[in-house]
Design a protein around this nucleic acid. Structure first.
Ligand SMILES: Cc1cn([C@H]2C[C@H](O)[C@@H](COP(=O)(O)OP(=O)(O)OP(=O)(O)O)O2)c(=O)[nH]c1=O
Ligand SMILES: [Mg+2]
Length: 457
DNA sequence: GCCCAAAGTCA
DNA sequence: TGACTT
DNA sequence: GGGC
């Protein structure tokens, strides 16, 4: 609730009186976040062209006035403080240093600054300065959590992860609208080329650096170079380069999720990653699969991929050839046959997913060899038909399977953001003497694994 | 001066 | 096992 | 690079 006390010039402050006519002298708020009131007020005052900001007061001023029966002078204790001014440090509890302890909106208010800091982080990554890169990523991360647009450097007093260097960058952006150091890094030839190389799925820092060192400067040069050996993933990265560079909409993500649910009607399918955080576009779709029967998740991914392959929907799968893993598993991969309990798989799928959804869910347990051969031959025939038809597109879809008992850890581990996950694990390790993964929590002192007993709504 | 998240899969 | 991915 |  929020109400304004408007008074005429006669009882307003002298300054307001001179403005003449009716003007707002007091704003009284109840049960509002002070910052919300101030944000609202600034919006309103901009629109109405208020020359002098009115007093912004707690409801206590009004009740005091009513008790005494007349308008009391404002005391400081009545005032709602504008946190966005400079109080971030002192009044309000200080901002925590771990990203996992901060609320961060999906659409934040400081893109200009975070983009600059992330450019510096990227530059540091290209020169393998991991520590500096991380520092700039943390700096960007903390700015994303601020509930106000940074307009003055004083607003950042007491904000963690912003040291001399980051502050200098922000200051320069505030003063000049651009920052020399950032622009230098952005225009640096090697950085630009590295960025392009690493935009290919499957190409990381080492490969990009090698290509650059070998004199390559563009993707066409890489493609044309006979000495360049590509992994399967990189081949796919080149093949579908343009489609994979297009953002995935949340509508597409939901459609894919629904199609996967239809293929596995007895499993639980959860969309994770950026879409779970409320983003409306992403670079891929992240899906977490589990099964309510403990152990029911075993072989789930193989089963799903069989279905998708039958549909001809799989353009790429980063998946151990079923033949190798499953048939040879018996003696060789004893530790890995239990690993069948927690799998992940990166795919490129053809959209729209084929709508013929015949979920024949009884597995052909006999003749595993034959089944696998069938799968691989399907797979290769579909690979031959690589080019998406008009109206189709390639989309990256990541699948993660976990046992029901680990669902909570998997969900926590795959929802992100990346910085959130890193800081959550650093927090576990540094503050709680524990090791967190997307499988479980490990107590370093008691030397034991912690699990969660739960039910999945 | 030390630390910086953790883990699965491939070639 | 290093490189790449999440 | 920034926190401790
Ligand atoms: C890249 C990355 C992701 N993750 C986790 C958190 C991510 O939210 C989740 C999914 O990874 P991503 O799909 O790479 O990230 P995202 O979904 O948040 O962003 P985008 O919209 O670009 O797809 O996996 C890590 O734990 N470490 C990492 O290095
Ligand atoms: Mg994602």
């Amino acid at each position: 609730m929020c109400c304004t006390a408007a008074s005429s010039g006669a009882i307003g402050s002298p300054a307001m009186s001179r403005a003449g006519g009716t003007s707002v002298t007091h704003v009284v708020a109840e049960r509002n976040q002070p910052k919300d009131v101030w944000i609202w007020l600034k919006k309103v005052s901009a629109k109405c062209g208020l020359e002098v900001l009115p007093e912004v007061l707690d409801i206590s001023w009004l009740t005091d006035c009513m008790e005494s029966g007349c308008r009391l002078p404002v005391e400081d204790r009545h005032r709602l403080k504008d946190e966005s001014e400079e109080e971030v440090c002192t009044k309000s509890p200080s901002i925590p240093i771990y990203a996992c302890q901060r609320k961060t909106p999906v659409n934040h208010l400081n893109h200009h600054f975070t983009c600059a800091l992330e450019a510096l982080a990227e530059g540091a990554e290209f020169s393998e300065s991991d520590g500096r890169a991380l520092a700039f990523r943390r700096a960007a991360s903390v700015l994303k959590s601020l509930p106000f647009r940074v307009a003055k450097i004083e607003q950042l007093r007491g904000v963690p992860c912003l040291g001399k260097h980051s502050i200098r960058i922000i200051q320069e952006l505030l003063d000049l609208g651009a920052c020399k150091e950032v622009e230098q890094i952005r225009s640096n030839e090697m950085n630009k080329v590295m960025k392009v190389f690493m935009s290919v799925w499957g190409v990381g820092l080492k490969t990009a650096t090698r290509w650059y060192r070998d004199g390559l400067r563009s993707l066409s040069e890489v493609r044309a170079s006979p000495s360049v050996k590509l992994t399967r993933m990189q081949q796919a990265g080149f093949e579908y380069y343009r489609d994979l560079a297009r953002p995935v909409s949340h509508v597409e993500a939901d459609t894919i999720t629904a199609a996967i649910r239809a293929l596995l009607p007895n499993s639980f399918i959860t969309i994770t990653g950026g879409f779970r955080r409320g983003k409306d576009a992403g670079h891929d779709v992240d899906l977490l699969l589990t099964h309510p029967d403990e152990g029911g998740e075993v072989g789930l991914l193989s089963k799903l991929l069989e279905h998708l392959n039958e549909q001809g929907s799989v353009m790429f799968q980063d998946y151990r050839d079923n033949t190798y893993k499953e048939t040879n598993a018996a003696g060789f991969n004893e530790s890995k046959s239990t690993m069948d309990r927690f799998e992940r798989c990166f795919t490129i799928l053809r959209l729209p997913l084929s709508p013929r959804v015949t979920s024949h869910k009884d597995d052909k347990v006999t003749g595993r060899q034959e089944v696998n051969e069938a799968v691989t031959s399907h797979y290769t025939t579909n690979l031959r038909k690589k080019i998406p038809e008009p109206g189709e597109r390639a989309v990256r879809v990541d699948f993660v399977v976990c046992p029901y008992s680990q669902y909570a850890f998997a969900l926590l581990g795959w929802t992100g953001s990346q910085q959130f996950e890193r800081d959550l694990r650093r927090y576990a390790s540094h503050e709680k003497a524990m090791i967190l993964s997307s499988h479980h929590l490990f107590d370093k002192q008691q030397v034991r694994v912690l699990t969660i007993s739960h039910t999945l709504h």
